[in-house]
Simulated assay, not measured.
Amino acid sequence: MVLKYLAVFFVSMVPIVELRGAVPIGTGFMGLPWLPTLIVCVIGNMVPVPFIYFFARKILVWGSDKRFIGKFFKWCLEKGEKGGKKLQEKAGRGLFLALLLFVGIPIPGTGAWTGTLAASLLNMGFKRSVVAVILGVLLAGIIMTLGTLGVFSAITSIFS
C-alpha cells in the first residue's frame, strides 16, 4: 500500500502529468481511497513549486546562450514572458485569481509547473504565487477526483 502511495506521489511531481494524471491512477487504476490519494497528490504536486519559482528562470537565462540548448532555453524564456505578459494584461489586478484558475482547470499544460514558471517570470511575489498555485492544485484535484469517481457522469445521467 505504501508503494502505491509513493508511486502516486512521484507521478504527481512529473511535469504535464502532475496531479491530473496521478489522481486517476491512484483512485481508478490502483484502487486507493480518494481522500488520502488526493492529499498525497496535492503534496507531491507542490514539492517542485519552490524550486521552479526560484531556479527555473535562472536556469533558462543561464542556458539561453549555450551552444546546444540555447535556442530551446531562449524559446522557453520568450514564450513564458510573452504568455505571462498576455495573462497580466488580461487579468489586470486579478492576476492572483487568473493564476489560480489557470492552474486549477485540469487541461494539459496548465498545471503547477507552468503556473509557477509564469508567476516567476511575472515577478509575482513568492507567497502570493504559492497560495494561488496550491489553491489551483486543490481545485484541479477536486475536479479530477470527482471525475474519476464518476460524479460528473452520474449528474449528467440524472439530467438526461
Rank of each mutant, 00 (worst) to 15 (best):
Y5N: 09
A7I: 14
V8W: 10
V8C: 10
V8Y: 08
V8S: 10
S12E: 11
V14S: 13
L19R: 03
R20V: 04
V23L: 02
G26V: 00
P33D: 05
W34V: 14
P36F: 10
T37S: 15
C41T: 07
V42Y: 00
N45I: 10
V47C: 13
V49F: 04
F54N: 11
F54C: 07
A56M: 15
R57F: 01
K58T: 12
G63L: 15
G63S: 13
G63A: 15
G63Q: 14
G63F: 11
D65P: 09
D65H: 15
F68H: 15
F72Y: 12
K74Q: 11
K74V: 02
W75A: 08
K79M: 04
K79N: 05
K86G: 05
L87T: 12
K90W: 03
A91D: 07
R93M: 02
L99T: 15
L99C: 08
G111C: 04
A112W: 00
A112Y: 01
W113K: 02
W113T: 02
T116Y: 00
A118W: 00
L121W: 08
M124E: 08
K127C: 01
S129A: 09
V131I: 10
I134R: 09
V137D: 10
L138G: 04
L138H: 08
L139C: 11
L139T: 14
I143Q: 12
M144L: 13
L146I: 07
L146S: 07
G147R: 05
G147C: 04
G147I: 02
S153G: 15
A154E: 13
I155F: 14
